[in-house]
């Protein structure tokens, strides 16, 4: 099953490579990984999307906790949470595509953030599956380029990951 794991870690050089190295050394799946500092500049917040059996996920959490730089680990799937990802898609906007793309963008509540003669750049946020659905819905021939940030996640209500 897919899991979204949130990690608070020391904002130290090399911390990212410890996590990435752990996943490759132990052959864990890694679908996406995002990391950036938090409001406390000494801490980084990382979100990893991974998948595996319950046993594998349990090991991943334990192994992450074992890393010396890791302060806290939370499996967001253990409770209610919100997942968001940002995607930028550059699509063809010539001929019939020009209206079609605008319409699809509206349906998925995206925004056109750059307009050129032959193309639009669409910004879309949502869960990973919503972004997948958008790409699915587009005519493959229209897609010029996609870039996704990977998922970020946060617990709902008072599920808070903080020191």
């Amino acid at each position: 099953m897919k899991h979204i794991i949130s990690i608070l870690m020391e904002n130290e050089a090399g911390a990212l490579s410890r996590v990435a190295g752990l996943f490759s050394a132990r052959a864990y799946n890694i679908e996406s990984l995002t990391v950036a500092p938090t409001e406390d500049a000494t801490l980084s917040r990382m979100t990893i999307v991974t998948s595996g059996s319950d046993e594998v996920i349990e090991q991943i959490i334990k192994q992450l906790n074992k890393l010396i730089d890791v302060v806290k680990v939370l499996d967001l799937n253990d409770g209610r949470f919100i997942e968001r990802e940002l995607m930028l898609v550059k699509v063809k906007a010539t001929g019939p595509f020009r209206d079609e793309m605008k319409r699809m963008c509206d349906i998925f509540r995206g925004r056109i953030i750059d307009v050129a003669d032959g193309s639009y750049t669409i910004e879309l946020t949502g869960s990973g599956s919503k972004l997948d659905a958008f790409l699915e819905a587009l005519d493959k021939a229209a897609i010029l380029e996609t870039v996704r940030t990977g998922a970020s996640g946060i617990g709902r209500g008072d599920r808070i990951l903080k020191l």
């Binding site: 046993e55 349990e58 090991q59 334990k62 192994q63 906790n65 074992k66």
Partner: peptide
């Protein structure tokens, strides 16, 4: 002493 040793190979 190491939580990750527990239930790693054997439940």
């Amino acid at each position: 002493v190491d939580p990750s040793s527990i239930s790693k190979r054997v439940k």
